[in-house]
């Protein structure tokens, strides 16, 4: 580093194995640090869920925590979609938990001991795929259930006849922009937060290296600010996962119940 800390380095994808020969249909599918943290997310989620599988009538602490998460998503689906939303609860729950745990794992302060956490959700490819999957499910369900009647989604009730073509275009545009906003929101929130933390951490370290005087006026305030931003980032981790799941459930509601 030598005094120069690159805040973007944390987003770098580095292949761990299979760099050369792991290929699928001509594309390299090396097991990268991104894949590793995806697998760790899966493992953490599996361990967490395993603690809630006792099925005790009077639950212990862990089971209450697991049931709190499942109940949160189940209730959200029920409120936003109704009884028909039950079929999509597994998907939205998987989405919510994957994003939440991936976000939180990326926040782990393991850099101190030399393991650099990788935030899976700070990559546009990942958030974009999740958004496209959500949007595809909305499209498939919408056309499956309503056929071409699904297009009535773009014409709100009580639109005056001459306004219909214009409203249709606007609504279609706002509908088509959904996957982009869905994917970009999570990507940008995670990336911005991590860059901010890394920049502040650079201030702290460079200030400490520059001597006690600079450390007192640069490192100390930066460190205090980092503590606050870290707490804020953890809130953002939860909020972004919630927003992604909530918007998915709202879009699914459009597809299932139209207006």
């Amino acid at each position: 580093m030598a005094g120069k800390i690159d805040p973007m380095h944390q987003f770098l994808i580095e292949p761990l194995f299979g760099t050369q020969d792991w290929a699928l249909a001509g594309h390299n599918v090396a097991f990268t640090n991104s894949a590793l943290w995806m697998v760790l997310t899966l493992a953490a989620m599996w361990v967490f869920m395993l603690g809630g599988m006792k099925g005790a009538l009077v639950p212990g602490r862990w089971q209450v925590a697991v049931e709190g998460f499942t109940g949160f998503i189940t209730d959200m689906m029920h409120t936003n979609i109704g009884p028909k939303g039950k079929a999509f609860t597994p998907y939205v729950f998987s989405l919510f938990m994957f994003i939440l745990i991936a976000n939180l794992l990326g926040m782990l302060p393991l850099g101190i001991i030399g393991i650099h956490p990788f935030t899976v959700t700070s990559h546009l490819t990942v958030t974009g795929i999740l958004a496209i999957v959500s949007f595809s499910i909305v499209l498939v369900v919408g056309f499956w259930k309503h056929g071409f009647h699904f297009f009535s989604l773009f014409v709100p009730h009580g639109t005056p006849l001459p306004m219909i073509p214009l409203i249709f275009l606007i609504e279609l545009f706002s509908f088509m922009i959904r996957p982009f906003s869905l994917g970009l929101r999570l990507f940008v929130a995670m990336t911005a937060g991590h860059i901010l933390l890394k920049v502040l951490a650079g201030f702290v370290i460079n200030g400490l290296n520059a001597g006690p005087g600079i450390a007192a006026i640069v490192s100390l305030p930066s460190f205090v600010l980092m503590i606050g931003i870290t707490l804020l980032e953890m809130l953002v981790c939860a909020i972004q996962a919630y927003v992604f799941a909530l918007l998915t459930s709202l879009y699914l509601n459009d597809a299932i119940n139209l207006h």
């Binding site: 699928l24 991104s34 894949a35 989620m45 599996w46 998907y91 899976v120 490819t125 990942v126 999957v133």
Partner: peptide, 18 residues
């Protein structure tokens, strides 16, 4: 690579956990 591993991991999460 990201898409491949994401689909594998998310598929495992969806079918194994969800």
């Amino acid at each position: 690579s990201q898409i491949f591993w994401l689909l594998i991991v998310f598929g495992l999460i969806y079918f194994g956990i969800g």
